[in-house]
Design a protein around this nucleic acid. Structure first.
Lengths: 344, 344
DNA sequence: CTGAAAGCGCTAACAC
DNA sequence: GTGTTAGCGCTTTCAG
């Protein structure tokens, strides 16, 4: 920067002004152009550290997650957040925590590094409260929401997911649609079960409790599904998660039935729906993880910079874009998007 | 820091000396103690940004990956790297790239942020070359290696993985052990196939080519496995990956055979082995992802600080710890570790 | 053994 | 319009 000033025959502050785009009406155009030219020649790049020492802005975002780094879906979210951050000139430091103590630790470290704001994510653990230590920082919750709706969040819409998934089975011409759920009290269970019922009802199907099979794991679960097969002979299955879908696959195979041909499955997961149905065939339907991350980052950056995000440069996606500029706190619910074949 | 100096009645430089542990033989012990006490009282934490402005050391590490963020295994690696980094007072900025251009971009950004060193990872793409732009930075390759062995790396040992997995089938008392491989030319294929053969040979089994079944995907693959079942009736299966294991599960189910009871499977993946065998039963065997990340970070930090890593504080793990202090470049090959039940 | 002083690269008042 | 100046918080010679 000093070199540029010398090369252009101006002072350092002029260079600073120009390079920060604050020259409008302060530095004469030709001079500004000269400065820019010299800067280019010398291959100047800002030193963000030095800058942040003055500005108290680092353009670094902290991503706090419990287990985010251990699911493939989380990766997509972080990827999206990183891309968005990168677009706006930010970087993300991701930290994973296990338990309160380490969380506070990581937060403290992140603060020392001067992050401008935080993502706070709890994978598939939807109601959470943001630690007090994040108090006066901009925060966006990802795949989680706070009890009193104070914090902007982006999270899956369990009801809609199950609704769409069930509709898919109906489209595939299934007549006896089973619900293979979880007998543990999962947070997602209520919304999904309601979505299943609503989809049936909206399509003129009567809800039949004998088609509902809430199971735990392993042998007993497998036998319960086996029994359901024998007694009700379902031709469509809504599965709460992968493990439950597995039982259906196994039972079908034992009967010589092929999933995707003789019976249809739509399996949900915390972050994904996979479907093997006759028509449409062999597709996976997922939450727009990448986009969730992208949106979350845009939201966070807009909070930091106190200006609306520019949605024109958003990624090409089939995911419906939620309105991000709604007043804070905004709750964004995600729908599902198509993702290609389930078998690779 | 100024406040501490005032409170303790010393100068700022003394405070700096003490707080950086460079007081030995320079500042009198009681004075140093006083400084430390005041620092505690005032809740002092260093400002890493200001510090790095002087030292040209940020204690930030850059993690460059292509698709690292999209596999669950990658998450484990990053997690381990982060934990190690955190232990030594470092942070990690992870960037994901797609293609050369964006990679160079991310590298440039990371450099501007003053990272002290780089992880360079290419998931399951084992031979790679580190971009020239990383030239004079400390670099550790993760799950990749360079052609001319110039860069320290940590990567899976395909031969050993397949060897161990096959041994497992032998332990489970399998007599006709099939190899379900990949007819595409995968990098991992050679090592794994060799490991399979070596394990058989070492246990006194004759290698039987008719038990080898290299397939592609979908219907044809399924039929090929079906044929193998009919013709050779294997009781143990080494599967190159998940997809291949799936065909075996399907074929077994159709014959009323239960995997883990009637037949045994050991399935490998780029990063994981899962086994369903009679004895030992229902276990997953994985690469020590977490540890890989941990070790990689230790290695990188030791390169940055030009001193051997302290391995006494390493994470509790059943994974065999590789020697990290071998001369650079060190190639670290990972073995497998037990991980609990395959079905949750 | 301790303190004074310079400066890392940049920004932002405030003069000129 | 442009330059001067004073730091941001810390480290590091170099005197004393």
């Amino acid at each position: 920067m000093k070199e540029i000033a010398e090369a252009a025959g101006v002072s350092i502050s002029t260079v600073s002004l120009v390079l920060n785009g604050r020259d409008e009406g302060r530095v004469k155009a030709p001079l500004a152009a000269l400065v820019r030219e010299k800067a280019d020649e010398l291959g100047y790049t800002v030193n963000p550290l030095a800058r942040s020492l003055r500005t108290c802005r680092t353009r670094i975002l902290g991503f706090i997650s419990e287990e985010v780094a251990t699911t493939p879906y989380a990766g997509g979210i972080i990827l999206g957040a990183q891309d968005a951050a990168s677009t706006y000139g930010y970087m993300i430091i991701t930290v994973s925590t296990d338990g309160r103590a380490s969380e506070e630790n990581e937060i403290a470290t992140l603060k020392r590094y001067g992050v401008d704001g935080f993502f706070y994510s709890k994978m598939s653990n939807r109601i959470a409260s943001v630690p007090a230590s994040l108090g006066d920082y901009p925060v966006v919750m990802v795949d989680a929401t706070d009890a009193d709706n104070q914090i902007p969040s982006i999270e899956p819409d369990e009801f809609q997911i199950a609704y769409d998934a069930t509709k898919r089975l109906i489209q595939a011409d299934c007549k006896r649609i089973a619900y293979i759920g979880c007998s543990e009290n999962m947070i997602a269970q209520d919304g999904r079960f309601a979505g299943y019922q609503a989809a049936l009802q909206d399509s003129g199907f009567a809800y039949d409790p004998s088609l509902v099979c809430n199971v735990l794991n392993n042998g007993p679960a497998l036998r319960a599904v086996d029994k359901l097969f024998d007694e009700r002979n379902p031709d469509g299955f809504f599965c709460f998660n992968d493990a439950r879908a597995w039982y259906v696959y196994e039972c079908a195979a034992r009967r010589g039935l092929t999933v995707g041909k003789d019976v249809s499955i739509v399996g949900v997961d915390n972050h994904r729906v996979f479907a093997e149905t006759l028509e449409p065939q062999l597709t996976t339907v997922e939450l727009p993880h990448y986009e969730m991350g992208y949106w979350a980052a845009c939201k966070l950056i807009s909070m930091i910079e106190r200006k609306p995000v520019d949605s024109s440069s958003w990624p090409n996606t089939t995911a419906p874009m939620p309105p991000l500029d709604s007043p804070i706190p905004a709750k964004i619910h995600c729908a599902l998007i198509e993702k290609g074949s389930v078998r690779s």
